[in-house]
Design a protein around this nucleic acid. Sequence first.
DNA 1: CGCAACATTGATTTCACTCAAAACAGGTGG
DNA 2: CCACCTGTTTTGAGTGAAATCAATGTTGCG
Lengths: 236, 236
Amino acid sequence: MELFVRRLAAHSDLDAEERDAVLQLPVQLLEVRSNVDFVRLGEQIDHACLVAEGLVGKFGQTEDGRRQIVSVHIPGEMADLSSLMMPQAATALNSLSSTTILRVAHKDLRALGLRYPSIATAFWRSSVLDGAIVAQWLVNVGRRDARARLAHLFCEMAVRYRLLDQSDGRRYTLPMTQEQLGDALGLTSVHVNRTLQHLREEKLLRVERSAVTIMDWKALVRAGEFDTLYLQRPDL
Amino acid sequence: MELFVRRLAAHSDLDAEERDAVLQLPVQLLEVRSNVDFVRLGEQIDHACLVAEGLVGKFGQTEDGRRQIVSVHIPGEMADLSSLMMPQAATALNSLSSTTILRVAHKDLRALGLRYPSIATAFWRSSVLDGAIVAQWLVNVGRRDARARLAHLFCEMAVRYRLLDQSDGRRYTLPMTQEQLGDALGLTSVHVNRTLQHLREEKLLRVERSAVTIMDWKALVRAGEFDTLYLQRPDL
DNA sequence: CGCAACATTGATTTCACTCAAAACAGGTGG
DNA sequence: CCACCTGTTTTGAGTGAAATCAATGTTGCG
């Protein structure tokens, strides 16, 4: 929860009272095993899901069962703040690993926004920043080859995890399977596997289990044509 | 401008006074020829662009010059309302055809949001709905083949144009070249051309110049696995 | 009329997919 | 503590959808 406030404060000015008000938000704890759809497509939502631990994927789906991950959310991020403005879920939420969620009621969020306009603004800005990430993913999937897609994703996640664990960003834990990486990048797990090997041979990065180690940041950025502009955050 | 209000009112409740306040917004007229970047990447923005006529594309770019259209905006839509919350443009805006734009100053929009909270909410909701469309495009580009991608796009545009021209949605004018369609769908213009021919042979739809005629709506919906859920609008 | 976009066609190549099987954890219960 | 199961990663061989390269039509406009 603290993390959530820190994230908000990173892009929007909030005074002590406002930060405190967010911290006081009543939440309901929810533990989910790996690979559970805890928000289903078309469902009517009355609470938002804040990721406390683990990893959450927002999924779109085709009729033949192929899935596309539209965004991933790491601890401290509200996975579906947008549900406040769009209560019928157009995408599903799925735990990519075993995850703990804090549910926050819409009515509490709404009340908070009414009472503190700058919090409402911060939420709005959050939605917009999330949207900018999705847009970049679209560029990534639409116009780059497998190698660049993977490189770009790992660069992005490095920057996003940095705010979380204060590490130097060269190492982080991304609990996604190769299958899930494929779902995020519009690739098959087989091709992800081969491309990952290629990336390792090139000494750009190494992924073992869930541990990502970036060996050559500069080269990785070049490979993924990564530019932090859309994240509105400084580079590593 | 009227159209913009109608769009807002379609998803958010606004009373007469609020609707009027939006209509009174001072604007600056801007005519742009086809294929002009009137908002460039990384530019600092202090006004939003409302499309009055024509068609606007939001572009992401790779280093080798390949472009990906991240969203298109038809008359009555604010192409970059998000710039209010993210003044440094992470995507460019380009006129896909000759277009007329109404520029609205950020400060006026902000003032309006402050004075009328439900307008602020309506703007926020607009951002969220835009985001939902981008997310669907990501599913489309990531997981569907060329035929389905095109079908999906034409279905979506049919629904979106309906609010505009009150037609039955079977015919509309989409001033995009095949090259631009390719940029929107992550395909080359050559492949768009061939797939379009295929779609015509199947008697699903016909595209001549900019005139789209849907010949078999049901079949097109099936081909594109189109579901209006994400648009929060009724089907045709 | 002639230029500049745009659309269309053909031939070839390539990147990524499919199918299939094997190796490799990690966790469970006997 | 090992045998087993399930999910994940790895490898191989063959296929296919879309890209690339390169011309040739077409259309509309100044």
